[in-house]
Amino acid sequence: MNTLATTRRILTQLRHDHRTVALMVLLPSVLLVLLRYVFDSEQAFSRAAPALLGVFPFAIMFIVTSITTLRERLTATLERLMTMPIGKLDLLLGYALAFGLVAVVQVAVAATVALTWLGLEIEGSVALLVLIAVLDALLGMALGLFASAFARTEFQAVQFMPAIVMPQVLLCGLFVPRDEMATALNWISDALPLSYAVDALTQVTRSSEVDGTLVRNLLVIAGCALAALLLGAATLRRRTP
């Protein structure tokens, strides 16, 4: 009940901010278009695009949520809410639901642009591709919520993006296949959730088979997103020093 009230409140805030909505919905698509013409070849684009269909929403959602929740902490609205009958998880799930809905729109637009205009061809199901990309966005959102607990200022929060997102992008198999990396890097890569997302996206591109590995990868992404949300709830305190 309070979760839905919070979701409605956040979506109303977004509705008043047209520029942010436009950026969130269109940015991944614009970047994919740019990538398509940088490669200047449909085959090269088709190899990289599925992974980026997950990476772009992941990064954008991370930064948007970490700033929004930090702002909530800094403007005393959080302090006020903490005196009211609202659960900490209510608040975070409210955020998750609101930004999850935005992520669905963002990914749907980007996937449509990539599959129709940019000539992306995938073997697996489009629905599954969209599902994985939305899970990626949710993962970015949950990590952003969690990271915001460790930022004291918006300036710090912005810099968590390169600190937390970039290493995952470098090690997720986008630039070099994960099994070709040095052993130590491969291990780190195994420990980072985005790697599983890119593995899953690559698999959907290459085959229509839904096997155990794919299901496991999806569970890892969803599990990490949930864990980050719960950790985020644990960082919210009703009493502060």
Binding site: A5, T12, H16
Partner: peptide, 30 residues
Amino acid sequence: RDRIGYSTQSPSVYADLTVRENLRYFASVL
């Protein structure tokens, strides 16, 4: 939690909502 009204020194309302939207949200929480 629903028996105390508290207003902090710096205004604790959402700047990007209207007055009514703010109140509607807090009313539903309460």
